[in-house]
Simulated scan of single mutants.
Amino acid sequence: MSQAQIHLIGNPVSWGVANLSLLAYQLLAAVYLVRRRRGFKDLPDGAWGQFVCLGGVCVGGWLVNFVPFLLMEKTLFLYHYLPALCYLYLLSPALLEHTHTHLLSSVTHQRALCLCASAVLLSVFLSYRTFCPLTYGSPELSANQLQGLRWRDTWDILYRRR
């Protein structure tokens, strides 16, 4: 019987990308709203409606699933955050597609966006490979190896001795 412990931290890079996409959507929506109020229509009405619907579904879904757990006075676990995180994972590629379609017109900008997206995907994969022992419990690591996976001092990685 295996003594591997599973810590369920997930993938910190993909969590960060998802949260950055939420921030990027909010900033982009604020810029669009200010410019529309001043009479500039950066997007055609159909694209604007699609952008607003994207926010309603993804950001609204995130809020509905995340905010109630902020009001709880108990320890929160991964299963509290996971449904909200799924909405942010849906927001990330949709925002990338919006940026590609409506904001970047030149081939040079589109190549830079492709390169940036490839770098993000590579870093998500490398983070997955690094944290596999914590997330899935395989392969088993020693106490020193587990402590070496700590990115932050606040991470409390427990190791059970046999």
Rank of each mutant, 00 (worst) to 15 (best):
W48R: 14
F131L: 10
C58Q: 02
D42Q: 11
L33H: 15
L90N: 11
G137C: 05
Q50A: 12
S118F: 15
C86V: 15
L71Q: 03
Q26K: 10
D153Y: 14
L149H: 08
Y128T: 13
L104Y: 05
H98A: 06
L141F: 00
G60S: 04
Y25T: 08
K41L: 02
P133W: 05
Y25V: 06
S138L: 14
Y136I: 13
V17F: 12
P44Y: 08
V13L: 03
L88V: 04
A117D: 10
L115G: 09
L23M: 09
W15G: 15
S123M: 01
L158Y: 13
K41Y: 00
V17E: 02
R162F: 12
L88N: 07
Q26R: 09
T101H: 06
A29D: 04
A94H: 04
R160D: 11
F40I: 15
V57H: 08
R37N: 11
G10N: 02
K41W: 01
Y128D: 04
P12L: 02
L43S: 02
G46K: 10
P93Y: 02
A29G: 01
S106K: 03
C116E: 14
D153T: 15
V59H: 00
V34R: 01
A143W: 12
V31T: 06
L54A: 02
G60R: 00
V59M: 04
Q26S: 09
Y128R: 11
D156E: 10
L28Y: 10
L63P: 07
L85A: 10
L96G: 09
C86D: 14
V31H: 11
K41D: 04
D42R: 05
L122M: 06
S118K: 09
T101A: 12
L149D: 01
A30G: 04
T99N: 07
V124G: 05
W151N: 08
F77E: 14
P133Y: 01
S138H: 13
V64K: 13
A94C: 11
L63S: 12
L103I: 04
A143G: 13
P93I: 08
Y128H: 15
F77R: 12
H109C: 14
F40A: 13
V67W: 09
C116K: 11
R37H: 00
S118Q: 05
E97F: 12
R150L: 04
C86H: 15
L122V: 05
R36W: 07
P133M: 01
L134K: 05
C116L: 13
L121C: 09
G61K: 06
K74P: 12
Y89Q: 06
R38L: 12
D42M: 13
G49P: 03
G39S: 04
L78T: 14
Q145F: 07
V120I: 08
L90W: 15
